[in-house]
């Protein structure tokens, strides 16, 4: 099978595909941000407080904003978001997972641990770039990281129930961070480990299962559901304006 994103693929502007390992490719970062925005949108009107409804929606908007700028640098943003199949997406597996163990779950503890891991990695990758999109994205990632950090500490060091829930999320999500942090692992650990420590949380002792494949288009079962929902309306009306 040929890689649909390989040289010659018509949807992606070739110039923008310069591989930058510590920065990640524009398409990888765009897809991470787009799928993260799509997942975060599930929280709308479901958050534990009204302030958090505002914050999570805001973070979803930031992610979507960066995804759009990156996709626009690669081609037609809607063509790329709505017309690619799951094997053509280059996001890491972490962002496509549901916010809990099963499809449809929406666990706030899981979400803030997910955001801590993701925002720390995004901040590092955007910092490795040097352009206007990155400058905006770094500032926003710093805010996302701060927001997630505060919640992970509050929940880790809150009640015994909250500690149990975020500890479980750390254990479930940790395996996926290897793919997320390829090339930036040490810097990432230096951000995340002190937060876990202050939150009285521990990394899983068994760390050999390291799922990956997202960067080459081999995803989990979850991505095609995310895309089915995101793309259904657009695909039902080909070629029209919205």
């Amino acid at each position: 099978m040929t890689d649909p994103m390989s040289e010659g693929s018509s949807r992606v502007n070739q110039q923008a595909r310069v591989p930058q390992r510590s920065g990640g490719t524009p398409l990888e970062l765009a897809d991470d941000a787009l799928i993260a925005a799509q997942r975060l949108s599930e929280w709308v009107a479901r958050a534990p407080t009204l302030e958090e409804d505002v914050a999570l929606t805001n973070i979803a908007l930031d992610q979507l904003g960066v995804a759009r700028l990156l996709l626009q640098s690669l081609g037609d943003e809607d063509e790329l978001a709505y017309r690619r199949g799951d094997a053509e997406f280059r996001n890491c597996l972490l962002v496509e997972l549901p916010f809990g163990r099963a499809r449809g779950d929406l666990d706030f503890g899981w979400t803030v641990v997910w955001l801590l891991f993701l925002a720390a990695a995004q901040k590092l990758r955007y910092e490795a770039w040097d352009n206007e999109v990155a400058a905006k994205a770094v500032k926003e990632s710093a805010y996302h990281l701060d927001h997630a950090t505060q919640w992970v500490i509050r929940l880790g060091d809150g009640t015994s129930l909250s500690r149990e829930r975020v500890q479980a999320a750390v254990e479930e999500l940790w395996p996926y961070t290897h793919e997320l942090t390829e090339g930036i692992r040490d810097d990432w650990l230096s951000i995340v480990e002190p937060v876990l420590k202050e939150a009285t949380l521990v990394k899983p002792s068994h760390d050999t299962w390291r799922p990956s494949g997202g960067r080459s288009g081999r995803h989990t079962e979850h991505l095609s559901y995310v895309l089915a929902e995101m793309q259904a309306l657009h695909r039902a009306h080909p070629g029209v304006q919205w």
Partner: peptide, 8 residues
């Protein structure tokens, strides 16, 4: 569903 978060 948010009760445990607010309590924490």
């Amino acid at each position: 569903e948010g009760a445990w978060v607010r309590e924490a």
